[in-house]
Design a protein around this nucleic acid. Sequence first.
DNA 1: AAATGGGGACTGAACGTTCACTCCGCATAA
DNA 2: TTATGCGGAGTGAACGTTCAGTCCCCATTT
Lengths: 196, 196
Amino acid sequence: MKKEVVDKRRAILTAALELIAANGFHGAPTAMIADAAGVGTGTIYRYFADKEGLIEEVFKDVETQLNETLMDNYPVDQTVRRRLDHYYTGMIRFFIDNPMKFKFLGQYYDSPYGVALRRDKIFAQKDNGERCETMKNLFEQGIAEGVIKDLPIPVLFALFIGTLISVARDHILGFIVLDKQLIRRTADASWDAIKR
Amino acid sequence: MKKEVVDKRRAILTAALELIAANGFHGAPTAMIADAAGVGTGTIYRYFADKEGLIEEVFKDVETQLNETLMDNYPVDQTVRRRLDHYYTGMIRFFIDNPMKFKFLGQYYDSPYGVALRRDKIFAQKDNGERCETMKNLFEQGIAEGVIKDLPIPVLFALFIGTLISVARDHILGFIVLDKQLIRRTADASWDAIKR
DNA sequence: AAATGGGGACTGAACGTTCACTCCGCATAA
DNA sequence: TTATGCGGAGTGAACGTTCAGTCCCCATTT
């Protein structure tokens, strides 16, 4: 835990992420994860309760990284649109830069593990005071200001984020190449969907 | 195969669809499918090569039903927007009316089974002459007419269909209730995303 | 400095379970 | 009798998990 010489916990987390992203949950047996991490199969159970526990930890890890990325340079004092755009482009970039993490999240969300998870829960910050807001809050502010359509929050969420996920997947699968300009135009188009 | 008294093939297809939609691929062992269908486990292998073959058949079945639904009352002579709207609302209604089929498709698409599948392939008609068009064609027409943004087809697809899938899922999971009016407003918002 | 001993991180063969799939006998029909 | 459609106990492979044993580190002793 403290020695950095060989952090086996990290090695297991990384191996699990990569193998699950590449082959799915059931294409990543514990023996294979242990192998890729360079540890014995038993060692996994020294750091995690069971395979499900391991997967949960991987998820939390990715979630934290994504949240940290999104908090970076958060434009607190700008318009609702600018703040939403920060989230949108930040997420796209994170997924493009970390395709394995994107695929893992995809695996996670529609599986027994993630069914109970609400989509907006991802962005529910816990202890960051005023620096960030949930997207839900942003949508509500936008509606109050009259700049966003008065639709139920989950619908706005679907309109705004559903596209993001589809576009990111297409990029990762190689159907399109999302350069800076195309990201810009996609983000604008998604804004068109929810703007009043 | 020909006797309708008890169509075991159909019973197996139906049972597989329901169980996979409810519990996922790995929560639906062959023994359970056979039980639900009221046949012996061995009988499955009289009608299908293996479990993968069965799942493929279920997929083709659902695909065909969806396509047939969409061909109904297809507004051949109307504007691009009207024709796209026909697809959009038709799909939403199909998914709302057949939540199990929606869930099954979700399972199918991000699994080893569906990786090779292109999204627009779903709508590639085979033998229907001029009655229907692929969404790809509709997007291209729209771009040529100057009514749709000049973005890559997969991006337009993501903008238009990504939202549909998210919204349908939210409805099926019970987070929102999609009545006729809300479907209308969602379809319009999705159009805003792609319209010029 | 060198020798010793104890403790805990680590390992992987082995275990029990689960699953897709097979095989052979049975029931029905001709 | 022969042919056909079917059932479900049985089979081997693969999986998650365990646990008895190994090995390394370091405190202690000489």
